[in-house]
């Protein structure tokens, strides 16, 4: 197991390298550069050139990438172009915990709602409840979650005033867990909706598949009650394919957090990324990309470890 984890971590290095090369290329292909936003539009051409020269923006893309990579492997993400003098690592450490909290809670919400719904749907197959869950799921798949976010803000926050409109905490108030949770509920729920619908459908079909298996018939023939059959003999088998979905969900959560963090003004790395992308703040963009890619790699590794935990047939 340990050697497997070490091997997987080593394999992640070339993967992350490739991701950084591709992202750097795409980023550079986008029109404009940081100076376009930072400078007075009336600035003289030679002064602009001098600025560009000082940031190294006139060097070839290979040289620029090499310089970034050289610094990065030493743990130095450089300084933000736009917020002058602020190290990127400082921006990241201030915001990453917010994003991780949001993602963790979202994942939890998605699983705690979807799996029971899917299982329930499967055991009541072709009933009214099953159809209702199916219809809601398809609606959920078809609805973009930023729209759900906006609607919920309008109804629950603006009209009813039940939840704050955005942010992580009430400005100027002392820290309180209750206040934090109050701010967390809406964005976490909305981020979770992105995968809840799909996850419900997957749990349903996975459970249906398991209920057709011979060992379920054996359990019934042994006189176990429906509940025991489903939860003791069925559920653990049904969860094995769901782990795959967990691995696949993580990237979509990171992508989704970019949108949801802007909708809810949630100061996480998603919002940071969005701002950096608009301002062509190259060092910040690259730092977020590397961190997001690392999170995805870790998520997939976690999924593979979970397989071994849930399925005794899998050993590493």
């Amino acid at each position: 197991m340990t050697t497997y984890i070490i091997r997987r971590c080593l394999m992640a290095i070339p993967l992350l390298f490739l991701i950084s090369v591709i992202s750097f290329g795409i980023m550079k292909m986008a029109p404009g550069d940081p100076t376009a936003l930072m400078m007075d539009p009336m600035i003289k051409q030679e002064n602009l050139e001098a600025y560009k020269e000082s940031y190294g923006l006139n060097d070839s893309i290979v040289v620029q990438y090499g310089r970034w990579l050289g610094n990065m492997v030493q743990g130095n993400f450089g300084e933000s172009f736009i917020r002058q003098g602020v190290p990127v690592s400082e921006l990241i450490t201030a915001r990453l915990p917010n994003t991780l909290l949001l993602m963790l809670v979202s994942t939890f919400i998605a699983f705690i709602i979807s799996i029971p719904l899917g299982v329930w749907s499967a055991t009541k197959r072709n009933s009214l409840q099953d159809y209702a869950i199916t219809v809601v799921s398809f609606l959920g798949v078809a609805t973009p979650n930023f729209w759900i976010g906006l609607v919920l803000i309008m109804v629950l926050s603006v009209h009813l005033g039940w939840f704050p409109i955005g942010g992580v905490a009430t400005y100027g108030e002392p820290f309180s867990i209750w206040d934090r949770l109050h701010h967390l509920v809406l964005p976490a729920f909305v981020l979770a909706t992105a995968d809840m619908a799909g996850l419900t459908r997957y749990s349903r079909s996975s459970m249906l598949d398991v209920l057709r298996q011979d060992y379920i018939r054996t359990a019934k023939a042994n006189g176990f009650r429906q509940k025991t059959v489903i939860f003791k003999h069925g559920l653990r088998n049904a969860l094995i394919p769901i782990i795959t979905i967990f691995g696949l969900m993580l990237p979509s959560f990171i992508g989704g957090s970019v949108i949801i963090e802007s909708v809810f003004a949630w100061p996480g790395i998603g919002l940071l990324f969005m701002e950096a992308a608009f301002q062509r703040d190259y060092p910040v963009i690259m730092a977020v990309v590397v961190i997001a890619a690392t999170l995805v790699v870790i998520g997939n590794l976690l999924a593979d470890i979970l397989y071994a935990v849930f399925d005794p047939r899998i050993e590493y």
């Binding site: 060992y215 359990a219 003999h233 005794p312 047939r313």
Partner: peptide, 21 residues
Amino acid sequence: IRGKEVAMIFQEPMTSLNPVL
């Protein structure tokens, strides 16, 4: 009754036992 008074064994021993227990 099932499993106590009347017990049953099936055709497919390969799949009749629960793989995760």
